[in-house]
Amino acid sequence: MLDPMGMVEIFRTQVGETPYSRLNPSTKFILFASFIALPLISASLPIQIFSLIAQVPLIILSRSERRVKRSLKASLLFIVVLVVLNYLTTHSLEFSLAMVLRLVSMIIASAIFMTGTSPAEIGDLLTKLKVPLQITFSFVIALRFIPVLADDVVMIITSQVSRGYELERGGFLEKVKRLIPILIPMIIIAIRRGHQLAEALETKAFGAIERRSSYVVYEYGRGDWILLIYAIIVITIGLVVGTLTPQFQLLPFRC
């Protein structure tokens, strides 16, 4: 049930040639932000169901069915824990279900965004939003390094397994302890990579000037306008449904 590599998949950017990937990065970000905000408008079940259904066209446009499936499969343990905890604290199956659908909806939104947006596009977008270069760059590098570190983890695990090491042996605590031979090489490799990257950046004059120039121009096409209107419609419906229903409470069990 626990699939750490699948969890990594959620953050692994992987851009293919799809109608979604060709959109302007700001359109993709607005869509992403809309579908993260939509399930938060209300805790009501209809909103969560609507949020899921409204994302279907984006899944098709980004051809991210596989990615969505893998991300959801990887999050299964958290989903189960969420249902159980919510049910134990609220005794409401409907509320527990709504919370799970909220999480699922957000996972899908992230999977779609990560499938169709390259780290460079995210960086350009943050720069446009006047986010300081150091923060933008750190974020982009973090995204870029997720697949690299994920590949390292695969290699570390296969190396240790090939030495007769069994990761899955014993109870929960024993399993956690057995992660040490995986974590130590991973941390050392990550630090070494960080050091190499810092050296590489120095040699490429990173930080020499405050505002870096850019040659990339993003334009708005017909698809961008259609999807921006779609985002507005979806959020409007969400606000109307969310505020008109009596369940307009973010955390009703606290009341």
Binding site: I156, Q160, S162, G164
Partner: peptide, 22 residues
């Protein structure tokens, strides 16, 4: 057979040795 059981018969040395040291 598991990889652990097979490791007694076939030892695999990876390209990058750093991946196994801890």
């Amino acid at each position: 057979a598991s990889v652990a059981q097979l490791s007694k018969k076939v030892g695999l040395v990876f390209q990058n040795p750093e991946h196994m040291f801890f």
